[in-house]
């Protein structure tokens, strides 16, 4: 696999809720280790795309392909840096390429396989309130992926330490600030060792003074080489972190390109208006 081959390839994704057509043929490519920022007005379908990439929503048409990982043809997967290579103790699980064709009937097994490859950080964190921080993080790897508990705990503690929350590992979510909860949400996603990280407005539920800590963590993940799709309204963050910015409105991609270009020098009128409005709000 060449380094530029996409980890994620989305083609013609379409979705309607009743008479409301939310996605009208979305294409998206995310090369390995790259970060795509998805921006656009509320209701434009950004969340629906992310949910489709995690099997939480079933599109009506289109396809999603996630590239292979750790196969013999791809010795560089771990060496490419980032995902798992720093904090992880073990080798990442080998995964063949996966394509879900939503035009045909998608089986629960395919949806499970998609979830195996992507992990999501939710706008409202969605931590499990009855579990401790550590339990939140290890639940998936231990219960679902059936990995050895001791190994998972060691990795989880390392990850929690990285985001400055190791001493909170036995706390319950309600004892944490929003920013801390979202960092746990990020660690919960990382612990699943996904190929693809999905962030749905990870800071928009946070008090302004808590935003930076979370963005800082995401920036570090980008530098480490994680492949990510981030829905965000934080344009400064998108400019610094994203390799590509995709602006969508009304269920279509209006404009896409390098972050500097789309955010500093947008070509489309709708993009210009959106960027101007956001910048003025701040």
């Amino acid at each position: 696999m060449s380094p530029t081959e996409p980890v994620l390839q989305v083609r013609g994704l379409s979705k309607s809720f009743g008479a409301n057509t939310v996605l009208r043929g979305i294409d998206l490519d995310v090369p390995r280790g790259k970060v795509v920022a998805l921006i656009g007005p509320s209701g434009s379908g950004k969340t629906t795309i992310l949910r489709s990439l995690n099997g939480l929503e079933t599109p009506d048409a289109g396809s999603v392909t996630v590239g292979a990982r750790g196969t013999s043809a791809d010795g560089a997967a771990g060496a490419a840096g980032g995902p798992g290579s720093e904090g992880g103790t073990g080798v990442e699980p080998v995964l063949p390429a996966l394509t879900l064709d939503f035009g045909a009937k998608v089986t629960p097994r395919e949806v499970a396989a998609l979830r195996d490859r992507s992990a999501m950080v939710f706008q409202h964190y969605n931590l499990f309130p009855h579990l401790t921080v550590l339990q939140n993080v290890i639940e998936g790897p231990v219960r679902v992926q059936k990995r050895p508990r001791a190994e998972v705990v060691a990795e989880a503690e390392k990850l929690l330490d990285r985001v400055g929350l190791l001493e909170k590992k036995d706390a319950h979510p309600f004892e944490l600030s929003g920013g801390q909860q979202q960092r746990v949400g990020i660690v919960r996603a990382l612990a699943l060792k996904p190929q693809l990280l999905l962030f749905d407005e990870p800071t928009s539920a946070l008090d302004p003074e808590l935003v930076d800590d979370v963005l800082e963590v995401i920036k570090e993940l980008a530098e480490e080489g994680w492949t990510m799709v981030i829905v965000t309204h934080e344009l400064a963050f998108a400019r610094q972190t994203a390799d590509e910015v995709v602006f969508m409105a009304g269920g279509v991609v209006v404009e896409r390109g390098p972050a500097s270009q789309v955010l500093r020098n947008p070509q489309e009128e709708r993009t210009q208006a959106f960027v101007r409005r956001l910048l003025h709000e701040i």
């Binding site: 099997g55 979830r115 939710f122 969605n126 931590l127 998936g140 679902v144 919960r188 699943l192």
Partner: peptide
Amino acid sequence: GQWEAGHMIGMSRGQ
């Protein structure tokens, strides 16, 4: 959101 988080970490409906 709790159902969705459960599914996100790979759990079935029953789990």
